[in-house]
Design a protein around this nucleic acid. Structure first.
Lengths: 236, 236
DNA sequence: ATTCTTCCTTGACGCATGTCATTGTACCCC
DNA sequence: GGGGTACAATGACATGCGTCAAGGAAGAAT
């Protein structure tokens, strides 16, 4: 169960309160900040479920979340990785449909909930927040379309290299400057790449043999970034 | 070359003027309607090019357009099919980046151009237009994410059936109630499915042998819709 | 420590699908 | 009509990648 607490004066929440709302006019920001409800979710806990109706948007104060579809045969496809400062659940809210994805915490995470009515009413009167929202949506759409092209045209090897770079961009590295600062299972990596778990494992082993990465349990250290970029074969 | 003519009183343009702008407040609609520039594009003509900077949004009065990425190896991936009443080019405009796709007319099309500054300024002051814009973006994003899952998990056969249904939903049927009312080359169909041209051809032949469709040049007649739906194997 | 469970790893195998090559067909231009 | 270009169709072939199966490693629970 999530420990739920309403805490407008929580400095930690205030500091990291999702960056999008900084675009809102000050009075609106105050209003949202007061109405929001912060909770802590444990690793593996589900924040919302595919098929459920949305009652608001979620803002990540701290932590890491995966958004995933469960395909027809039950296989999971990871759609997006969410980090501190991001919001999630807005798509379903705006198109007034049920969630098409499930949000699961990849590690203990602190998350704020902003009720639907408030969010929508602020959106109505705050043009700059609306604009920021459109900017986010456009950017997500652009990424999704690029991903469609790559899924259709690139071999798994290139997509895996690309995925490693994507994880690095999203969650960054640990203090050593090499280790990806998130622990994903091989299955999750495969579900991000869009391939079978065994294929992901095999290719990771190849990458290791080629000196591109080092593997230690779920730790992945990037040894030769240039080579990874070359393998990803990115042009655009 | 496009025959370019500014024509606020053109009844044809007025009638079909893109549905999104109906959501705008009346004064704004008038303003946009006056500033817009209508052009006619011939089949095969490019409306805008991947990599170019956007100067406005395009609204389709009449016709059919494909939006496509050209992948790294030059292979084309069709991202979206655009029909009368739709708008295009908004994504690049809103995220303030270059076009990530090329728009090409699939048949002679009548298209209005709304200048960037006007569009953005109206968006700033017209909450209900902004909201409609967000609704469209959310809906496109939802579709794109579903497509990612299917590309990653479904075999080509299912995806082809799905694509046929998608074309039907988008452009509808001819008067006979069976023939898809757009003519796409086999290569374009393949680029929509995300497969090789030969694979698309082979599977279309199979569908014909199975009595699901009838082929006559670029005409595709849907004989057994139920069976096509079953083949697409859609759950969500 | 021991069991249990979950995850990782590797091998073997087969099929779906991409690539290459050839022929056939329709349409267009002069 | 002839020749050209673009597209469609089919066969042969290679292989990338998914599936199945079995063994090993690591962590959790008792």
């Amino acid at each position: 169960m999530a420990t739920s607490f309403h805490n407008p004066s929580c400095q930690h929440c205030k500091d990291r309160f999702s960056s999008i709302f900084c675009k809102a006019e000050l009075c609106n920001l105050e209003q949202i900040s007061e109405a929001k409800v912060c909770s802590v979710y444990k690793k593996g806990q589900v924040i919302f479920h595919e098929g459920a109706y949305p009652f608001g948007v979620y803002c990540i104060n701290d932590g890491k979340i995966k958004l995933s579809h469960s395909g027809d045969d039950g296989r999971e496809q990871i759609i997006r990785l969410v980090k501190a400062g991001d919001i999630m659940g807005y798509k379903a809210l705006l198109s007034n449909e049920r969630y098409t994805a499930t949000a699961t915490a990849l590690e203990d995470s602190s998350i704020c909930f902003v009720p639907k009515d408030l969010f929508l009413s602020v959106l109505q009167k705050d043009a700059s927040l609306s604009f920021e929202m459109m900017r986010i949506l456009s950017s997500e759409l652009r990424k999704a379309e690029l991903r469609i092209t790559h899924l259709a045209q690139k071999p798994v090897r290139e997509r895996l290299a690309e995925t490693i770079l994507f994880i690095r961009e999203t969650y960054g590295l640990e203090a050593d400057g090499q280790t990806l600062s998130v622990r994903l299972s091989r299955e999750e990596i495969a579900n991000l790449v869009g391939t079978a778990t065994e294929s992901a494992i095999r290719l990771l082993s190849e990458f290791r043999k080629d000196g591109m990465i080092e593997l230690e349990g779920k730790k992945i250290r990037l040894l030769n970034l240039t080579e990874i970029i070359r393998t990803a074969n990115l042009q655009d």
